[in-house]
């Protein structure tokens, strides 16, 4: 209950701000001011500063870590900025970042450049997983869906428009038209889904309902028998069903879970990675260790991603020894 209230308040605050920005229509000024303040605040804390640059997908969770870590270790301040995984890697090569957030693996060429610039191999840390579940209404007859069908449902030139095209007739869905739930075009989830399902350079079909939050997607599907949508699996509620996903026709469908996301079996999941330049410094090492603790992993969960499971954490501990 407390949790829901907290979520509601953040949400209200968020909407209020959006509204205010529109009202003033002075977006540029407001954003510039806000950024200026953030920078000053983190500089004021003094002590050791860890520069953390990279993936936009991870920027929220990285920011949440940095804020929580300020209470754990007040003399270390973590400065987070986004820009994309590529930006993070570039900063790692230049030496302007201590930590690069990356929602994909490094390419061999990038590893070579890090080695060339610093003489040390980049170190790879898995800090969580991003798994997208495909949601339908609780009473929906469908249990699994293939990647191919998903692309045909969502892509600009796709030809699946009715549930009968998949051979099902959902209860309570008069007319049988599929209602496609998607995210607003700036969302990282939208981008990941577009790349992973539709393929590079392919756009979504017009007429999807573009909701403004991962939680909204699941809530709406829970009330709409005709709907299908994608969101982080952490947002699942009793009103919705997560479909098993079939990678290639003929293969068995894989249900989204922490285990299948971690093993790479589940097709629409990816590890959230952190890279450092060689062996991290003591402060960075402590920070990464803290990210792997329950406190750090709880933030992964609340940010809508999949935390590292028990086995993976012990694995990391073993690796370290």
């Amino acid at each position: 209950m407390v949790d829901t209230t907290a979520v509601m308040f953040t949400k209200l605050a968020h909407y209020r701000w959006t509204g205010l920005i529109i009202l003033l229509l002075a977006g540029a000024g407001a954003v510039a001011c806000a950024r200026g303040h953030a920078q000053q605040a983190s500089n004021r804390t003094g002590g050791v500063v860890i520069q953390n640059i990279g993936s936009d997908t991870m920027v929220n969770v990285a920011q949440a870590w940095a804020e929580a870590y300020a209470d754990v270790s007040p003399n270390v301040s973590v400065e987070v900025s986004g820009g994309g995984s590529g930006t993070g890697v570039a900063a790692l090569i230049n030496g302007t970042a201590d930590i690069a957030n990356c929602s994909r693996e490094l390419e061999p060429e990038e590893i070579a450049r890090v080695v060339a610039a610093s003489g040390r191999e980049p170190q790879r840390f898995v800090v969580g997983y991003d798994a997208l579940a495909i949601f339908v209404h609780r009473d929906h007859p469908l249990d699994e869906i293939s990647l191919e069908d998903l692309a045909a449902i969502y892509s600009e030139h796709g030809n699946l428009r009715r549930w009968s095209d998949l051979g099902v007739q959902p209860r309570g869905c008069a007319g049988g038209r599929m209602i496609l739930i998607s995210r607003q075009s700036n969302s990282g989830t939208y981008h990941y889904f577009r790349e992973a399902i539709l393929g590079r350079g392919v756009d979504f079909r017009l007429g999807t309902l573009d909701l403004h939050g991962s939680k909204d997607v699941v809530e709406l599907i829970g009330r709409t028998p005709c709907a299908i949508g994608y969101s982080g699996m952490g947002y699942a509620t009793p009103q919705v069903k997560m479909l098993r996903v079939v990678r290639r026709s003929g293969e068995p469908g894989i249900a989204p879970s922490v285990e299948t996301a971690q093993s790479g079996e589940y097709p629409i999941a990816r590890p959230l990675l952190i890279f450092t330049r060689g062996e991290p410094s003591r402060e960075v090492r402590e920070y990464l260790d803290w990210i792997h603790t329950d406190a750090g992993q709880r933030i992964v969960m609340t940010s809508g991603y999949v935390p590292l499971g028990e086995p993976s954490q012990s694995q990391i501990a073993a690796e370290r020894r």
């Binding site: 869905c173 038209r177 209602i179 309902l209 809530e219 709406l220 009330r223 709409t224 028998p225």
Partner: peptide, 19 residues
Amino acid sequence: GLTIMNSLIIRLFGAPIGL
């Protein structure tokens, strides 16, 4: 609108979506 009206419109008008 997102919660009450959505369900109401689906039930009353048989619309695929209440938004």
